[in-house]
């Protein structure tokens, strides 16, 4: 079945079986292997991508259902050899060890970053509650998220008083 999508601003068209999951479509048809596949049944969150700007699990969606829609994957973050603010913060705060969950974490946090919303640690934990990490114990991920979101809020409104 013909499926046309825009991924990270670029148009693609492929003929795929209806049963192909969006996660497999991204990895095997488009060669975008940054999206990781963990549990493959909607529990671990590592395959999170943005569908029309909102985080969804690409393993819990058929590729054909994404026809004529706009996707963003982790490959869409860094720009001109420069890491995205979220990626910088994860590096600085040691927000990863093996890195398997990281693309999902980043994509889950991306819309919050883009909205420049400052979150409390509890809200950050709730925001990433659908993403499992088996290495870090989450502490550094929360720190990385806080740092990135604080920076984004600062950039958006330099005069606002820091709440952290």
């Amino acid at each position: 079945m013909k499926t046309r999508v825009t991924v990270n601003g670029e148009g693609y068209e492929r003929d795929v079986e209806p049963r192909m999951l969006l996660s497999d479509f991204l990895r095997h048809e488009l060669g975008l292997t940054g999206t990781n596949v963990g549990c493959e049944h909607g529990v671990c969150g590592s395959c999170t991508v943005l569908l029309d700007g909102e985080p969804v699990r690409s393993c819990t969606m058929l590729a054909v259902q994404s026809d004529s829609r706009r996707l963003t994957t982790v490959e869409g973050l860094a720009c001109d050899q420069k890491l995205h603010g979220l990626q910088e913060a994860f590096t600085a705060c040691h927000g990863l060890q093996c890195g398997f969950c990281t693309p999902g974490m980043l994509m889950t946090l991306l819309p919050i970053y883009n909205e420049a919303r400052r979150l409390s640690d509890d809200e950050i934990r709730e925001a990433i509650s659908g993403n499992l990490c088996r290495c870090t114990g989450y502490q550094q991920i929360v720190e990385a998220a806080r740092q990135a979101l604080d920076e984004a809020a600062e950039l958006a409104d330099p005069d606002a008083e820091s709440q952290s």
Binding site: G45, L51, E54, P55, V56, M61, T108, G130
Partner: peptide, 9 residues
Amino acid sequence: VAHSQVRNR
């Protein structure tokens, strides 16, 4: 209901 990724879809 589930997590944000599921609630979006």
